[in-house]
Computed example of a mutant assay.
Amino acid sequence: MARTIARISDLLVRREASTASARWIVATLVLSVVAWIGGLAILLVVANRTHVDIPRLLAVKLPLLKTNPELIFAGESRTAYGVDPVLAAQLLSQKPGYAINIGYDAGEPLAVLGAARLAPDVFAKAHVVISVAPFIFNDGVRSAGVYPQDVAARLSVGEQLVSYLPLRIGTLIRYIREAFDARLAQQERLAETAPQPANYGLTYISHTQAEGKWAARLGNHPHYANWNISGARARYETKALCDLAKLSRKLTVVIPPWAARYDRSSDPEWRERESEIVELVTRDGARCGFEVLNIPSVPDLRPENFADEMHVNATGVPIYTRYLVEQLKR
């Protein structure tokens, strides 16, 4: 009997020790998480104060403004890789430098507005043609590669943490990194001192995406994920377009085509979401005084002229540029 009692007592002591140990482990983990979030919050506060609206990718193209262009192609990657400013100038019977291309990957209207504020005299004399993509307005897309950095900078630290933790920590890390990099580019005065980009800003895509990597349909493309164009992105970016219209001689917002292999008539989700973007931008255009050019397709563009779902390859650049200029002349 005494042995049994001793064993039971020993088991209870061990259980209490194990419970206490587990509590310490949980407490340590909780404190570690709190400290980690606190550290991240401090970094975000510093990044928010450091951030400037012109990222490095745009800053290195701004020396092109020294040509005093009258036609400025701007916006996201479909402009950066798809519009030939030299050919555009030729089509308008103008010399090279009349048109420039300052588009860049994941480019956003807020950044172009920042450029216009940096060089108001140039933009005041220019027709600005800016392309937009679904991820510019869709709050549902939170991946690091395409999240508009200038929109992120306008959110409070609390909003940033709630929106992106725990699954999208990479988006916050990229924002912090880009904020410091943009400030460094400003301090280096790259917008003034960087070398003039080749081809007046156009970069060609020389490769074509492997056949197995093309999206089966565009309605479920990541740019349309968790569809929501009534949040902060749409609010800030459309306001930027309105402000840009005031600083430009003329502003045209372009909604470029997707690859020719896709059929809108058989993809209602894609068709409806693109229509919502057109409606959103058109409504603000009527209110703020800018034009909207919706290009669902280009007659002469073929599937082989595209590098991937969104971008034309080198063979598609002159076809798209000619069509775009023809539409702008109307």
Score class of each variant (00 low, 15 high):
V129P: 10
E159H: 05
N138R: 10
P134G: 11
L172G: 03
A124V: 07
L172Q: 01
Q149K: 13
S156G: 15
A152H: 06
V141A: 13
P120S: 08
A126H: 09
F135A: 14
D121Q: 15
G145R: 11
V128I: 08
A124G: 12
L118H: 11
Y175S: 04
L172H: 02
D121S: 15
G158Q: 09
V162N: 05
P166Q: 08
F137G: 06
V128E: 12
G158C: 05
L167Q: 03
A133V: 11
R168H: 14
I173L: 15
R168C: 00
V141D: 08
L155W: 06
V151I: 13
S163F: 01
A153W: 02
S163D: 09
E159L: 01
F135E: 15
A153Q: 05
V151C: 10
F123H: 11
P134W: 03
V129T: 11
V162D: 04
A133D: 15
P148E: 08
R142C: 01
L118V: 04
L165F: 06
F137H: 02
G140Y: 08
G170Y: 01
S143A: 11
Y147R: 06
A119P: 00
G158E: 12
V132E: 04
V128Q: 12
V146F: 07
A152W: 00
Y147P: 00
S143L: 09
I169C: 00
A124R: 14
R154M: 01
Y147E: 13
A152D: 00
I169S: 10
A152F: 10
Y147F: 09
P166H: 04
D150A: 14
I136T: 15
V129F: 10
L161M: 11
G145M: 06
D139S: 06
R177W: 08
L167T: 05
V122G: 14
G170D: 14
L165V: 02
S156A: 09
G170N: 13
A126D: 08
L167F: 11
G145N: 12
V122P: 14
I176H: 12
R177H: 10
T171R: 07
R117Q: 15
D150H: 07
Y164M: 01
V122A: 12
I176Q: 07
G140M: 05
K125G: 11
V146S: 13
N138F: 09
T171N: 06
A124S: 15
P134D: 03
A144T: 02
Y175T: 03
L172C: 02
R168G: 04
R174V: 00
I173V: 15
V162M: 09
H127L: 05
L155G: 04
I136W: 04
N138I: 05
S131H: 08
S143M: 08
R154I: 00
L167A: 07
P166L: 01
R154H: 05
P120M: 11
G145F: 07
N138H: 09
G170F: 04
A153I: 01
V129L: 10
Q149I: 07
A153H: 10
R168Q: 11
G145A: 14
T171C: 06
N138Y: 07
S156I: 03
V141Q: 13
F123I: 11
P166V: 01
L172N: 02
V157Y: 10
H127E: 14
